[in-house]
Simulated assay, not measured.
Amino acid sequence: MTKHTAPPLAPGGLEPFQKSAALSLGVELELQLVNTHDYDLAPYAEDMLRLMDKVPLPGSVVPEMTSSMIEISTGVCQSSSEVLGQLTQIRDALVKSADKLNIAVVGGGTHPFQQWHERRIYDKPRFRELSELYGYLSKQFTIFGQHVHVGCPDADTALLTLHRMSRYIPHFIALSASSPYVQGQDTAFDSARLNSVFAFPLSGRAPLALTWDDFTVYFEKMTRTGVVRSMKDFYWDIRPKPEFGTIEIRVFDTPLTVGRAAALSGYVQSLASWFMNDQPFMPTEDDYLVYTYNRFQACRFGLEAVYVDPATGEHMALRDHILMTMDKLGPHAGPLGASSGIHLLRSSVELSNNDARWLRELQGKEKLLAEVIRQAALKFRGLPV
C-alpha cells in the first residue's frame, strides 16, 4: 500500500519589511476562463499566457491554482484611476487573446455551475505541492478573488493599518460580493466564495501584533512548529507583505467589471489615509469579538447584513455603517482622486445593489446560468448588457 504523507512546505522565512510609498496601490484579479459553447470553465490558462506573453503590458498575467483561472496584476499605482487605466489595458488585451481562442473571460467570485472535480491543477511546483497537501480543497479553490495592496511607510504602520482595517472587512465583502451560485445552486449567500477559503487551516484573522518586533516573535514561534515556512502559508483576510512593503486585503470577490475593482481600491486607499493621518482609534483584541459574526453576516446577506460595532456593541444596518464611513472619508478621498470611485460604490449601496444581486436578477429573468455567464462576459468587456 502506498503511504500518503504531506509534502514538506517550501522553504522561506520572514523577510525584512521593504520601504514603499505610503498609500500606493496594487491590485490583483483572479479571472474565469470559459468556453463559448456552454460557458463552463475551460482549461485554457496556458494558451492565454502564451498569447499574453507577446503583449507589452503594465503589471503581470500569471497562472492560478487550476488551469481554468488566470490572475492579472497591476504595477505599483498611485491612484485608483491609475489602477483603472492599467486594469483596462490588461483587460482589453485579455479579451483579444480570448477571442483568438474562442473563449471568454469573466469576473465574479465563483463560476455558477462548474464541477470542482473536473478541474485540473496547473502544472507548477507550488500548485502541485499545495494539491498534495490540501487534497480536494485545492480543486475547490477554483474561486476568484480581488486582492488590494496598499503601501505602508514602515512595518509598524502596516500592522496598525491592518488591524484598523479589520473593522471594515464586512464593507469589502458586501461591496464586492459576486458569488451567489455554486455548482448550479443559489447558496443564499451573496459571497459563497469565502466559505471555501475558510476551509484552509491558516485562514481567518491575523494575530494582534502591533509592532514588527511582536509579529516577528509570533512568526518565529509558528516556524518552530513546522506548520509554516513563509508568509505565503497564511491565508488571512489581511496579511502583511513585507517584500512589497504593503498590507494585502484578500476578502474581495472579483467584481464583474474592472471599474468596480478600481473603485474598491480607491475605497481601501481612502480608509488607509484616514487611519495613517488621523489615527482614529487604537485597535485592540476586543475588535475581534464580533469579527467572525460580522464577516458571516456580510457573506450571507451582503448589503442587507447587520453590522455590530466592536467598540460600542451597537447593532446597525451594514449599509448605514458603510454610508457613515464614506462620509468620514471625503477629506481623504478627494486629494487621492478616489471620490468618483467612492461615489460609484455609494450609489450601489443606496440602491442595495451589488454584483450578487445583478447575477440573481439576471438568472431570475433568463432561467439559465449559461446565459448569465454569457452576459457577465459582455459586462467584463465593458459592453452594455
Rank of each mutant, 00 (worst) to 15 (best):
Ser73Glu: 07
Met1Gly: 04
Asp253Gln: 01
Gly13Gln: 00
Leu383Ala: 08
Asn35Lys: 10
Asp99Pro: 05
Phe244Arg: 09
Tyr307Lys: 01
Leu49Ile: 09
Asn195Gly: 02
Ser131Lys: 07
Pro125Trp: 09
Pro7Thr: 02
His343Glu: 03
Gln185Asn: 03
Pro16Ile: 07
Ile342Leu: 15
Met48Asn: 01
His171Trp: 09
Glu132Val: 01
His163Asp: 11
Gly109Gln: 07
Leu175Lys: 04
Ile342Ser: 01
Pro7Val: 06
Asp38Cys: 10
Thr325Val: 11
Lys365Asn: 08
Glu82Met: 04
Ser203Gln: 09
Thr254Met: 10
Arg193Cys: 13
Ser339Arg: 07
His171Asp: 03
Gly59Ser: 00
Ser178Cys: 00
Leu256Asp: 09
Ile238Gly: 07
Glu371Val: 11
Leu289Asp: 06
Ser203Ile: 12
Glu46Asp: 12
Asp309Trp: 02
Pro384Phe: 01
Ala298Asn: 01
Glu132Trp: 04
Pro153Met: 11
Tyr235Val: 03
Asp53Thr: 01
Val34Pro: 12
Tyr181His: 03
Thr225Pro: 12
Arg360Leu: 14
Ser230Leu: 05
Arg119Lys: 12
Gln375Met: 08
Asp214Met: 11
Ile238Phe: 09
Gly85Asn: 07
Phe296Val: 04
Met222Phe: 13
Ser179Leu: 02
Lys241Leu: 14
Pro384Cys: 00
Lys3Arg: 10
Leu336Ser: 04
Phe296Gly: 00
Cys299Leu: 08
Asp92Leu: 06
Met65Val: 11
Tyr122Leu: 13
Met69Thr: 00
Ile322Ser: 07
Ile90His: 04
Lys54Ile: 04
